[in-house]
Amino acid sequence: MNQFQYVRPTKPQAAIDAVAKDANAKFIAGGTNLVDLMKRGVMTPQKLVDINRLPLAKIERQGNTLRLGALALNSAVANDAQVRERHPLLSLALNAGASPQLRNMATVGGNMLQRTRCTYFYDLSMPCNKRQPGTGCGALEGINRMHAIFGFSDKCIAVHPSDMSVALVALDATVLVSGPKGNRQLAFADFHRLPGDTPERDSNLEPGELITAVDVPDSPFTKHVHYQKVRERASYAFALLSVAAALDLDGNTIKAARLAMGGVAHKPWRLTAAEQVLVGKPATEDTFRQAATVAMQGAKAFKHNAYKLRLAPNTIVQALKTAAAV
């Protein structure tokens, strides 16, 4: 690991200033991803601004939304009584991720900003446009079993590894940000980026901007929800792919629906068109299959991940079946 400076401000503005003024500075919260990346030399910040002393860990109601402080621990959010009651989908997604030890360290903001698990990104001796722009994409013609089927570019086919973010994009959350130019809000769906020509940028945060909270609005999706994560072992593995499903049912009729997928794109992948297919229809496997077919429009596989074209629609169906309990 390279030597680095370490500061631990107690006020948000001081933290923002410290990073905004130094291109080689990074925020650190739980450190569950950044420290690994630093040990491997994938990321080499010269200054770490520890934000753990900032007062950003609260989970509280603000009008019709639940505000999750950026420093709220994944375990705290997953087990929070209000989250479990009003946003059980979020709780399910969080508990499907990582391990209890990691969830006790990782924060809301850090979870959103975790880097891809693409093996080419992690190996300094291999090409990776995300790690080192212009070197090429090792995965494009490499071992791309875990990679994207939506929204990729010829520069990068990596996927975003977060489970939590898949639930938050489905729940229409809003990201609150503070930066050198003041405060602003981003729709969760606009927070992460597709790789395009700049895969080195994972999110739309500007330099020095700090996530302060995530607002999750009240919704009718308190009962018929499910987070279906398919992985190679029963626990503690990144998703081959995952589906967040939420239904608002009137009897057996779908009044409203939310669907999002993880492990298929460079960002949590909201399936708006498929949601529209569901609305007004009976909650049956046949309906779910129709939605899954629409969800898969535009999907394209690489040499080693063609299975995702079969697995994704099946997982959508399974998630909706479990959510609707049919």
Binding site: D123, S235, Y236
Partner: peptide, 12 residues
Amino acid sequence: VTKDFADYHVPV
């Protein structure tokens, strides 16, 4: 390309 326990799985 499997260089850690995130990529190389053993049973939990």
